[in-house]
Design a protein around this nucleic acid. Sequence first.
RNA 1: GGCGGCAUCGCCAAGUGGUAAGGCAACGGUCUGCAAAACCGUUAUUCUCCGGUUCAAAUCCGGAUGCCGCCUCCA
Length: 489
Amino acid sequence: MVNNTVSVMALKVYNTMSGTKETFTPLQEGQVKMYACGVTVYDHCHIGHARSGIVFDTVYRYLMSKDYDVTYVKNFTDIDDKIIRRSQQEKIPWQEVGRKYIESFYEDMDALNITRATYEPKATDHIDDMIGVVNTLLEKGHAYIVEGDVYFSVESYKGYGQLSKRTLEEMMAGARIDVDEKKKNPLDFVLWKASKEGEPSWETPFGSGRPGWHIECSAMSTRYLGNPFDIHGGGKDLVFPHHENERAQTEAATGKIFVNYWIHNGFVNIDREKMSKSIGNTLAIKTFLKEYHPEVLRLFFLTTHYRSPVDYSEKSIEDADSVLHRLYYTRDRALETQKGKVISPARHADTDELERKFYEAMDDDFNTALALSYVYELSKNLNKMIDDKDASALGLIAYANDTLNNLSGTLGLLKDNLASLEGRERIHHLNRIGLDISFVENAIAERVEARKNKNYQRSDEIRNMLLEKGIALLDTPKGTEWRIKHSTT
RNA sequence: GGCGGCAUCGCCAAGUGGUAAGGCAACGGUCUGCAAAACCGUUAUUCUCCGGUUCAAAUCCGGAUGCCGCCUCCA
């Protein structure tokens, strides 16, 4: 009801292929087909995966809010070198590795309230599709077999390098690729690997083996979305070689355009350093969620444009945490004004204007940072109206609050409630410092008693004692409440 | 070595030709026994530096400096 006019506005997206923002025009009116590269399931997900997940979840949610019928595919790579290595390390079957980390993936992504895709296929369920693509490439002369490995010939496909914007010559000049004598061109990549002893393998017309990495996304995206389809996304690092290769394979095999819009998200750094396993500074989603509400991470990521790198730091997370609390608090205040009354929302021009700007920002290549600033402004307006205590404004407040919920919801925020937000933080914090809730409750009770007797010295002692443990007391009209005070930087 | 990106208040961050959004922090106020929380208000004549184009530039062009990414598995 609120946004029936917004879908008319044109969405612009930055297309990695052209290097510019383009007006988004789906192949079929009213429908969008998108594919985002999922994860290789050999370990728990870290906050970099969370960023990708949240970015494409935002795209997905936004497209749906514009009334597109979206078919969204996100894959699992459940057969690959790392998984095989992991299965040897953990001494469990490789299938078990996949199952284990897919489960872990869902735990994390569900906790982060990332909407599940329409289809979430596993590579191993689509081996036949991959064999089909490889076969076609062999038949069309785009691939060749050496010692059981099937390679894609990059020289046979004229568009190679267009996505990552470099030419074959430039890449050769880079010369960091080990020259493999078996390959016709050092840049040729493997479509199908002859499997070694003890490794999983599948029988194919071109010998037994297992798929290379890139072929699975080509096969699965084509299977579920056809060719071409509208949007293909993933982390920036996937542009080369993964997406370049996917594109080459698919276009060579089908003779059709593979994808119309390529969208890539920037990376997460930690304290200005690249997050990587070798540096040992990866932060697992599970670790993060022990301390903060999932929406804190979402809000934090949405504060920066999806294409820019984002630097994770305790300070930035604390900032996001404060803002999130405030938004929830505002909504609670607004709800409070409606308690026990029947109020019909009254349309409000100021609110409508902010909503319009919100959608305008989102339409401009998903500018969530700008869009959020309008949410904050809306929250500020709401507080002003509430402070005015003008009974005739109740309808306007209700309307603004509905809008706040709508817009936040479009970004995947304010899906929880204040009590839950604070409750889970309290539990986590108490666990971390090893205190029982009764300790806090007793201390508060003692302080209430002291205050009643105007023994403010004792009262302040107790307050300070708790504060040192990261527990801040709030004397409200309803009584003494407490919340977690994170580091005071 | 090749290719690409970025540089905006103490911190985070939007803004791609029309005269600097927003958040955090800080400060002032309301509230409070005092606080905290919450709310309100204030806070960049200026966008790394140098030169150029233009009536007009953070925004375009050239150069310098610094930081980062990709070129190898990676979201």
